[in-house]
Design a binder for these strands. Structure first.
Length: 507
RNA sequence: GGCCCGUUCGUCUAGGGGUUAGGACAUCAGAUUUUCAUUCUGGUAACAGGGGUUCGAUUCCCCUACGGGCUACCA
């Protein structure tokens, strides 16, 4: 086992917004690094110039920041291995590709994409659906293995486009021990001669990945399961370079909640939940994909949900602080199978975190929106609102749902009225109750409750005959926090007029 | 099609040769509550199938089925 300092990386490509599966990969990498006192790097894999999406990189940085996952090194953070953007490292890859050519592990190939396409189509037509550029077919192609040396030389000299391909050996077994899956075995006969260096002068993912992981001293590669099939290629490349390979851990995928398949960008808005941490506006189409942040999810709740989607502790703990996550996390306890994402449970996490937040912080959080809605309130008042609304809120803005805490009810719920309001007596009861309330010196929940009790005794009435009326008068509806609590928060000066108005309106 | 990976309640999962197979979300019922919500209590609900190995398999092995991933000069 490698005793050097743990160094892991999260290496997204900026082809669009980071989706929650990516965030989970980043989280697991981050937790693993922190747990072992190691480094977590952020590398941007932008070797495909055709898939560049403006704003994607900024989005990734911002998303990680929102989640509280902070790299030690990387794009936006600097570090000894800078630059961390592969497009800026372009000059270093060619030498490595050439090194492999010189060692006999790679070769030049001059076949054009069109030619390859034609061959694939022909093969398919001939019922050979899986044509590969490999140890057998390469001898019939245009490359430095089949062309005379001087022709290869002159083609390169005159600037003919070429790629460099890995020369995958035949009849060898590649095996490596995945931390999550155990031994994984492949035969090189199933592997093809992957392009390492593209005709545009850029490396492919495979080359850049290996070179960077090595030069950045990465010790553990923790990435999605979709990379498992190319892991043997990577192992072979480490062998070819004569470098020590890092340890691999391939994470199971996050699946869509309904049906099958991995969770994709489309699923979110189709099923009514975000798949992205932050809202994203597609620069080309202008389409907006919703984000957890904008929907009112707390970053810690989001992270906690992600943590448990594929990983579980040995006890039944569900709620984790970041410190606890770091302390308990281990790659060995990550499950092998894909996990269907459950939006309902995500809400539950949010609710848990919301309840554990200081009242003051919540009040401050909703203050701007309250102002926007035209409520003339201060933070202190909102703290009172939070106190009343918290137990029925999942998102911060749910706390503002009781509009009656900010303005007089505009109408009285029809069903509530028809059920509880009795023309012949309700008005009188409310009027008497109102008089009783006005006589109170201190106006708080306790005094109102006490007054209510004595009122009921005096009039020989039951709770159910008065409270609902009181509630209708104050809020216009039959749901929500206790009427006494609402009244106490509003204050006497608002309560009496509301009762007055109610009596007038409903008779 | 080929290669690789996987399979415990509806969902996320714990467990592991002998257990009443545990928890959480969701769901249902009851209790509390002036209402809603909360809270509490309880319930329904799972080892994909078939072969081995074994005194005994949900647990170990094999096969089948099913699911997923990959199969580009994309990452």
């Amino acid at each position: 086992m490698n005793t050097s300092k743990v160094r892991v990386r999260f290496a997204p490509s900026p082809t669009g917004p980071l989706h929650m599966g990516g965030v989970r990969t980043a989280l697991y990498n981050y937790l693993f690094a922190k747990k072992h006192g190691g480094d977590f790097l952020l590398r941007i894999e932008d070797t495909d110039q055709t898939r560049y999406v403006p704003g994607a990189e900024t989005y990734i940085l911002e998303a990680l920041k929102w989640c509280g996952i902070e790299p030690n090194e990387g794009v936006g953070y600097g570090g000894d291995c800078a630059p961390y953007r592969q497009s800026e490292r372009k000059p270093i890859y060619k030498d490595y590709a050439l090194e492999l050519v010189n060692k006999g592990w790679a070769y030049y190939a001059f076949d054009t994409p069109e030619e390859l396409d034609t061959i694939r189509k022909q093969a398919e037509a001939a019922k050979m659906p899986n044509w590969q550029y490999n140890s057998i077919s390469r001898m019939t192609m245009k490359n430095s293995l089949t062309l005379p040396a001087d022709e290869v030389e002159s083609r390169i000299q005159q600037g003919d486009p070429f790629v460099i391909r890995f020369k995958m050996p035949r009849n060898e077994e590649v095996r490596f021990q995945d931390i999550i899956r155990g031994w994984v075995v492949f035969s090189t006969n199933e592997l093809d001669d992957k392009v390492l260096y593209k005709s545009d002068g850029m490396p492919t993912y495979h080359l850049a990945n290996i070179v960077d992981d090595h030069t950045m001293s990465i010790t553990h590669v923790i990435r999605g399961e979709e990379w498992l099939p190319s892991a043997p290629l990577h192992v072979m490349m480490y062998r070819a370079f004569e470098w020590e390979a890092p340890l691999f851990a391939h994470l199971p995928l996050i699946l869509k909640p309904d049906g099958n398949g991995k969770l994709s960008k489309r699923d979110g808005d189709r099923l009514g939940f975000p798949v992205f941490p932050l809202e994203w506006k597609d620069p080309e189409t202008g389409n907006i994909s919703s984000g957890y942040r904008e929907k009112g999810y707390l970053p810690k709740a989001f992270l906690n949900m992600l943590l448990l989607l594929g990983w579980a502790p040995s006890n039944n703990q569900e709620i984790f602080t970041l410190e606890e996550m770091i302390e308990t996390f281990s790659l060995e306890r990550i499950g092998k199978s894909g996990s269907k994402f459950d939006p309902e449970k995500t809400k539950w996490f949010n609710q848990q975190y919301l309840r554990n937040m200081p009242r003051r912080a919540l009040a401050e959080m909703i203050l701007p929106t309250a102002k926007e809605r035209g409520y003339d309130v201060c933070v202190e008042y909102l703290e009172g609102v939070v106190e009343l609304m918290l137990e029925r809120a999942v998102f911060p803005l749910d706390l503002l749902e009781g509009t009656y805490l900010f303005e007089d009810p505009k109408s009285y719920d029809e069903e509530a009225v028809s059920k509880k309001w009795k023309k012949e007596e309700s008005g009188q009861i409310l009027l008497d109750w109102s008089i009783k309330l006005q006589s109170l010196e201190t106006f708080n929940v306790e005094s109102i409750d006490t007054a209510m009790k004595s009122f009921l005794a005096e009039k020989n009435l039951g709770m159910g005959q008065v409270m609902p009326l009181f509630r209708i008068a104050l809020t216009g509806v039959l749901t929500g926090p206790g009427a006494a609590q609402v009244a106490a928060l509003l204050g006497k000066e608002f309560v009496t007029p509301r009762i007055q108005k109610c009596i007038e309106t409903l008779g």
